[in-house]
Every structure is written in structure tokens, then in C-alpha cells.
Design a protein around this nucleic acid. Structure first.
Length: 293
DNA sequence: TAGGCCATCTGGTCCT
DNA sequence: AGGACCAGATGGCCTA
């Protein structure tokens, strides 16, 4: 019936409707979930009619849709009327339905954001706090730019290797690209690589690309400028700037990143940024914000 | 305690 | 008309 029954939340703090009304939220409890709906002019408690409707729906056995059924029914009935003619409970039901939709929409957005985080070359795991949304987006942008640069570089090298056989160059590049995954052996690409999904897309045989995924975002994390200097390739600081540790004493990031001996760290965060590579700086971020307004 | 990040609510606007 | 999308407001949680 109601669409938000289909999706679970990617966050524990994103309860489903049932959770909102039937369980205490962490910290705030019931009031935390409901009180904000009363910030404007709604009464602090649900109306008696509303609660009755919910109770009846719950008694009907539809646990998942207990609230939703009541809300949908009331909303459907209310939809036939003018809003001004709607009673207070009907208006509340409509509001709750709209709120539920909006919550689902935001949950979907968060799920997509989680999916994006999963394929980003940053440390995953319990000891590393997950990227914020803005950091995820900025990191993703820089990562795409880095991969584009890598691809171009690879094409260029293949063209050089094959010299004048220009008509073979494109095919060779394609073949090289296709061959790459298996050639990497244990360093298989893809999300299956624990803790470092696609971070080594910068091939070790290729010169370091211009990418530094974190440079732009560090200015986002660190409120006061100046931006931190590039991270040295060998030593891994406790924080990449982007990544928040659960506690100061938490495991250093180097432990979360698998680093292969005798091989430059494939983590693009550890690579020195190139002046040619444009990354999203704090300034550009603010510009971006301004542009979108 | 201030600031960052987030979830949620809400009203408005646009689209189908 | 209903749903999707958006932005502002608000309050909670967490960290430095």
C-alpha cells in the first residue's frame, strides 16, 4: 500500500513509521520523533481520533501498516474534500502521510549515498567513521576525475608502446583495459577488496596520477583553513581529514587500509596532488552552494 | 560548549 | 490531484 513499507533504513536513526510511533528513539524517545512535527502549530499529542484509527488498524493485525493503513484511509477520505473542509485529524493524517513519503525519499537518498560510499576508495570498517554526505560527494567527484586521468594516461602509454601502429592503438587500449582485472591477480578490482574497494584503480605500473581525492574535502572537514598539506605517501596519519575516528585512541587509518609491501600505496588519498588536477576546494564548494541558490 | 552532521517536519513548487 | 523535489527550520547526537 504505502510505498515506504518496502524499504528499510540504512541508518539506525532512520526509523520506519512503525518505529517512530511504536518504539522509543535513541535518546529522544517518542517525543524526539513526534515533537518536531509539533514545532509549528500542531498539538503536542496525536488527536484521539488519530490514535483510535491507528489502534484499530493495529488491532486488525496489519502490524506493518498499522499506522499507514489508517493514515492512507484518512488521507484518501480527506483527499475528496477541500483542505479547508478537512477536520483536524484528517489534516494530521494527510500531514503524516506526506511526512512518511518524505522520510522514505530521504531514506532512499541515504541508501544511494551508502552505495556510493561502498565503492569509494576510503577505509571501511568499524574503526573508521563513515564519510559525511558532502565528503562522499566531493570524494566521488575527485575519484571520477582521477579515474578519467588514469584512463587517459593508460591510453597514452599504450599508444606510445604501439608506436606508429595507430590503427592498433585503440584496440590495444581496449584490450589492455579488458585485460587489466585478471592481470592484477590478487589485487582484484571491485568492491570485494576488503577495506579498499577500488582504490588501486591507479595501476602500480602507471605513474601516479594527478588525483588526490581528499584534498578538496579536507577543507570541508577542517572548519578553519588553511587546508592541510598533502599526505605523505608512506606515513599514514591518524586521519585523512575526511575520516572521522570514533575516538582519538582509535586505530590509525593505516590499519584500515591494506597496503601492499614494496608497492606504492594505491590509495589515491596518499598521492601528492597535482597542480593540473582541479579538485573541489572549499572555495569552490561555497561557490557551488551559491550557484545552486 | 560550540560546531558539524544528521533526521525529520513543513510548506512551496514543479511535474506527470 | 497526487507525488516528487526542494529548501528552511528545528532539535538531537557527537566530537574537539
Amino acid at each position: 500500500m504505502d510505498s515506504d513499507a518496502s524499504l528499510g533504513s540504512s541508518r539506525a536513526s532512520s526509523p520506519e513509521v512503525d518505529d517512530i510511533f511504536l518504539h522509543s528513539r535513541k535518546g529522544g524517545g517518542f517525543s524526539a520523533a513526534v515533537s518536531s512535527s509539533t514545532m509549528s502549530d500542531s498539538p503536542a499529542e496525536l488527536s484521539a481520533e488519530l490514535r483510535n484509527a491507528m489502534a484499530m488498524a493495529a488491532a486488525a493485525g496489519d502490524k506493518l501498516g498499522a499506522f499507514k493503513a489508517a493514515a492512507a484511509a484518512a488521507a484518501a477520505a480527506a483527499a475528496k474534500k477541500d483542505k479547508k473542509q478537512m477536520s483536524e485529524p484528517e489534516l494530521q493524517q494527510l500531514r503524516l502521510k506526506i511526512n512518511s513519503r518524505e522520510r522514505k525519499r530521504m531514506h532512499d537518498l541515504n541508501i544511494a549515498m551508502d552505495g556510493l560510499r561502498e565503492v569509494m576508495p576510503y577505509a571501511h570498517g568499524p574503526s573508521v567513521r563513515k564519510l559525511s554526505k558532502i565528503a562522499t560527494l566531493l570524494l566521488a567527484r575527485n575519484y571520477i576525475l582521477m579515474l578519467t586521468n588514469s584512463l587517459e594516461e593508460m591510453k597514452r602509454l599504450v599508444s606510445e608502446i604501439y608506436g606508429g601502429h595507430h590503427h592498433h592503438a585503440a584496440a590495444a587500449a581496449a584490450a589492455a583495459a579488458a585485460y587489466h582485472p585478471s592481470a592484477c591477480g590478487a589485487m582484484a578490482h571491485g568492491p570485494s577488496l576488503s577495506g579498499h574497494p577500488v582504490g588501486h584503480s591507479v595501476h602500480p605500473l602507471l605513474p601516479p596520477t594527478a588525483a588526490t581525492l581528499a584534498t578538496g574535502i579536507s577543507s570541508v572537514r577542517a572548519a578553519p583553513p588553511p587546508p592541510p598539506p598533502p599526505v605523505p605517501p608512506v606515513s599514514h596519519p591518524a586521519s585523512h581529514g575526511l575520516l572521522k575516528s570514533p575516538s582519538p585512541a582509535s586505530a590509525p587509518l593505516g590499519g584500515a587500509f591494506p597496503h601492499w609491501s614494496g608497492m606504492p600505496c594505491p590509495c589515491s588519498m596518499c598521492q601528492v596532488p597535482s597542480a593540473a588536477h582541479h579538485h573541489v576546494s572549499g572555495a569552490s564548494l561555497s561557490r557551488l552552494s551559491a550557484d545552486t541558490k
